[in-house]
């Protein structure tokens, strides 16, 4: 009996270990490590891509997903999570992965439009009837308003939120960084809880009923209004917001190891095809394709958008100044330490 137990154990342990290794031929497997709100998007997209890939190559492809705050996901990939592709919330997080040697530093030029197949922006989600009369960023800085936003240390959306607020303050208060800092500080004073990801914040606001206003990805906000919190919420578009460009990239080292480079590349390119753009638009992401954008123009509020390059000199600078250890965010939200 003992020897039987031992042999079963051996078999099981042998079976358990080489889980990561894959062989090409019968089935390709891709791991897409993505940021928090894209769950529904990639569910649909993966199904469409699998069909496409089967049609093109006759091979079955299975795409596995992992979702979480963009910064956290990037760190997980650096720490060994074997992603074939990363579809994160901002270029900086992909840069972080590139800096660890897993993909080349010029990744952004490898796909069109800075490797951002869709864009989004930051808007406000309020409860039906807008009881606190939230109209613009100023209202978020007022005392007595409870604001929900995720943790910039882990979430990509949270950093876009922060920079959108900062950008508004700069434009409105005469380009003075000190005044902008004060403004953003007052907003964060109103934040009772920082979730690790954008979806976590949505859950806190929608499900747990905490907060008067949620600073959210536009696609999350529309999802909340149309789907998960039907009839209970309204979107308020601020007068000024930031153009958010979530970036995608193949993780070369991992794809080479898994022998999935071709599939991974095609997977990301498929996001730019009309079908890919349609799926993105259907999930409330702003498509890049002009024709698809025209078709779905009505579902997106009209907002004046600025880019991160304009006001912040790009992500590296913004990350360094604001989100690194001891940066401006740490200074204004000391509690998080």
């Amino acid at each position: 009996m003992r020897s039987r137990i031992l042999s079963i154990l051996l078999l099981l342990s042998v079976a358990a270990f080489p889980v990561g290794a894959q062989t090409v031929s019968q089935k390709a497997k891709l791991l897409n490590v993505s940021y928090d709100p894209t769950r529904e998007l990639y569910q649909d997209f993966n199904a469409a891509f699998a069909k496409y890939w089967k049609g093109q190559t006759g091979q079955d492809v299975e795409i596995q997903q992992s979702h979480g705050g963009s910064g956290k996901q990037a760190r997980s990939v650096i720490d060994g999570l074997e992603a074939d592709v990363v579809t994160l919330a901002l270029a900086y997080d992909v840069d972080a992965v590139a800096n660890s040697g897993l993909l080349p530093k010029n990744w952004q030029t490898r796909l069109p439009l800075n490797s951002a197949p869709y864009t989004s922006t930051i808007v406000f989600l309020v409860r039906k009837g807008n009881p606190k009369h939230i109209k613009d960023w100023d209202d978020l800085a007022k005392p007595g308003v409870s604001v929900i936003s995720p943790n910039p240390k882990t979430s990509g959306g949270a950093r876009w939120n922060y920079l959108a607020a900062w950008g508004y303050a700069l434009k409105k208060l005469g380009n003075d960084p000190a005044k902008a800092k004060d403004f953003v500080a007052r907003i964060y004073k109103n934040v009772p809880v920082l979730d690790t990801g954008a979806r976590g914040s949505t859950v806190t606001f929608v499900e747990r009923g905490i907060g008067d206003v949620l600073i959210a990805w536009e696609n999350e906000a529309i999802l909340a209004v149309k789907d998960i919190g039907k009839g209970q919420f309204e979107i308020v578009a601020p007068s000024l917001s930031i153009l958010a460009e979530p970036s995608v990239a193949v993780v070369d080292k991992v794809a080479a190891k898994h022998k999935t480079a071709a599939a991974a590349k095609t997977y990301l390119e498929y996001l730019y095809t009309p079908e890919g753009q349609e799926i993105a638009a259907r999930h409330y992401y702003r498509p890049r394709s002009a024709s698809v954008a025209a078709k779905y123009a009505d579902q997106f509020p009209k907002i004046t958008l600025f880019t991160i390059d304009e006001l912040f000199g790009g992500w590296t600078k913004a990350q360094q100044t604001h989100f690194a250890d001891g940066g401006v965010f740490d200074q204004i939200y000391g509690v998080g330490k």
Binding site: Q64, S66, R199
Partner: peptide, 22 residues
């Protein structure tokens, strides 16, 4: 776990994922 759906999610983790996705 790494929360890789279909690969490193056990039943309790899967319950959490579904719950958080409404």
């Amino acid at each position: 776990s790494g929360h890789i759906r279909g690969l490193t999610t056990t039943l309790p983790l899967h319950v959490e994922i579904l719950y958080n996705e409404y």
